[in-house]
């Protein structure tokens, strides 16, 4: 039972990542391979604010999301002005650099050793330390992220970002300042990734730089692709399936380090096979 609760908590964290990345990729057409970097920025910001300044989890998580979102806007502005190829390449480089900063800025991040002993959330004397309350808390965050995303994609704002994806030139002709919309979506999506990072840090109570590598971004991308572009329910489905894959591999009896590589192999195959045979994903509403 506690195992199921553990998986459900992981599911809600990865669902937040998948849904928010879908805003960028599926709706706006910005192929980002750096979502794990913002996941990491949120996790580190929250962990440091809690352990070094003793802030409450909720305050730290919100600040973490803001920091992640502000950096997300800046990076989004830097890459999105220049069109698809630059965005993609720049995003890979940025994720790589964030991990190298987390490893090398030892005075702040404690380097490769990571940050241990991150406290569990508590509010007004009530602790979310045990598994069930924490699961409920992460599900509440997931529902919020889902609701905001749904509102975003159904609003007039959502229609404009879809127009940017379809034909940026045309959207500009109609008077939309498209760069502003791309930067805004970047800010929203990366702030959500920051929230996922805050939950992750507090749930695992220990974070280290390599958790947030490009390979993690590939996993989040696989979640989006599995479920489908431009369908946020699809990303829930993707998170569900891809959180279960490692467990299935473990039941299949692979040893721990082989299993980690097998996981990557499966994520990679998901990307290749979906692109070859079903580029819109299982229930996607858009195909590139």
């Amino acid at each position: 039972m506690s195992y199921l609760i553990h998986l459900s908590t992981l599911f809600s964290i990865y669902a937040i990542l998948g849904v928010s990345l879908n805003l960028l990729i599926g709706y706006t057409g910005l192929i980002s391979v750096m979502h794990a970097a913002f996941f990491g920025v949120g996790a580190y910001a929250t962990a440091l604010l809690m352990t070094k300044l003793g802030l409450n989890f909720f305050l730290a998580a919100i600040l973490g999301a803001v920091i992640s979102g502000v950096i997300g806007c800046a990076i989004g502005w830097l890459f999105a002005r220049l069109g698809g190829d630059y965005y993609v390449m720049g995003s890979v480089a940025w994720n790589f650099i964030v991990v190298s900063i987390l490893i090398n800025w030892e005075s702040l991040t404690n380097g490769p050793l990571g940050i241990p002993g991150i406290p569990k959330p508590s509010l007004g004397g009530f602790s979310f330390g045990s598994n069930v309350p924490f699961l409920i808390l992460s599900l509440i965050f997931l529902v919020c992220v889902y609701a905001i995303s749904r509102w975003v994609v159904r609003s007039s704002f959502g229609r404009v970002i879809k127009a940017v994806r379809e034909d940026e030139e045309a959207a500009r002709v109609f008077g939309y300042h498209t760069l502003f919309f791309k930067v805004a979506v970047s800010g929203i999506a990366t702030a959500m990734a920051g929230i996922a990072g805050a939950l992750f840090a507090s749930y695992i109570t220990f974070i280290e730089p390599t958790t947030f590598s490009v390979m993690e971004s590939v996993l989040i991308l696989a979640i989006v692709i599995f479920g489908g572009f431009a369908n946020i329910r699809g990303s829930l489905l993707g998170a569900f399936a891809l959180v279960l894959i490692p467990e299935a591999l473990r039941f299949a009896g692979f040893s721990a380090d082989i299993a980690a590589n097998m996981q990557q192999l499966v994520y990679g195959l998901v990307l290749v096979l979906f692109m070859l045979y079903r580029p819109q994903g299982l229930i996607g509403e858009y195909r590139f």
Partner: peptide, 24 residues
């Protein structure tokens, strides 16, 4: 005539598979 994002994603998948294969 797959569009660039699709081909890119496939190449990212191929990268991931090859890297995992080398590690195994």
């Amino acid at each position: 005539k797959a569009r660039p994002p699709v081909v890119f994603t496939a190449s990212l998948g191929a990268f991931t598979v090859l890297q995992a294969f080398l590690a195994i």
